[in-house]
Amino acid sequence: MIPSAFEYLRPQTFDDAINLFAQHGENAKILAGGHSLIPTMKLRLAQPKVLIDLGRIADLNYIREQDGKIAVGAMATHHQIETSELLREKCPLLCEVAPQIGDVQVRNRGTIGGSLAHADPAADWPAAILALDAELEVAGPDGARVIQAKKFFVDLFQTALKPNELLREIRLPATSKAVAYVKFAQRASGFAIAGAAVVIRPESKAVGIGITGVAAKAYRATASEKKLEGQPLASENIAAAADKASNRVEALNDIHASADFRKHLARVNTKRALELAAARAER
């Protein structure tokens, strides 16, 4: 790769990272796993003056139970999530999503925080985070705050992060095994053309459905969720709910899939994910 010249900074603590980011402002880019940033630097589409590498900050890389929730540090890699016993037990949706991301090399370096903060409309994590109603803790020079997943994704590559804020932690509720992620991948990149993440919450007779790849930002399929509220997960109910998975969505349209096809696949994969999750609920 032949990028333009940049200064490379490697803070040892999260606070140092925040300070450096504040200091360099828009001249700086944050380097997490680098799997979106490096390709754009390679093509010189991104030419940051300063790279702030979060890779050596030990207290950003963890997966642990914390106050009744599961906390995942922003620098946890896809591979760590894929192989986490704790997540497999307490929040299995993440373990189902992780192995569907990229390939082994990508999963070994790519991070959940980097992916979420980049807000690629076709990334896999946003669907899961939305379906799970996760909380995201972010921090900047003015301190930390929590953003609800459904408020986090604003638009194409845009999040609710302020220009000087960093994502620190993703907090997830424990769920049953009644979860699923079904994805139709773009052949070349492996990104989602339509990915549907489903969480069934038997206790409240509700479901959470997150859809990625279809629109400029990942979204909650609220019409589908409502349709299933309080309903048994019978196949006709599932089909009727899935039918609404891309209602009133302005879908993306590119050489890899037309808007129509994306909306269709959102319905198909929502149905398949609901069926899969429902089958797991019965087990």
Binding site: P39, R187, A188, S189, I255, H256
Partner: peptide
Amino acid sequence: TGEFMDYP
């Protein structure tokens, strides 16, 4: 389709 991101 000028990159492996677009050419499978």
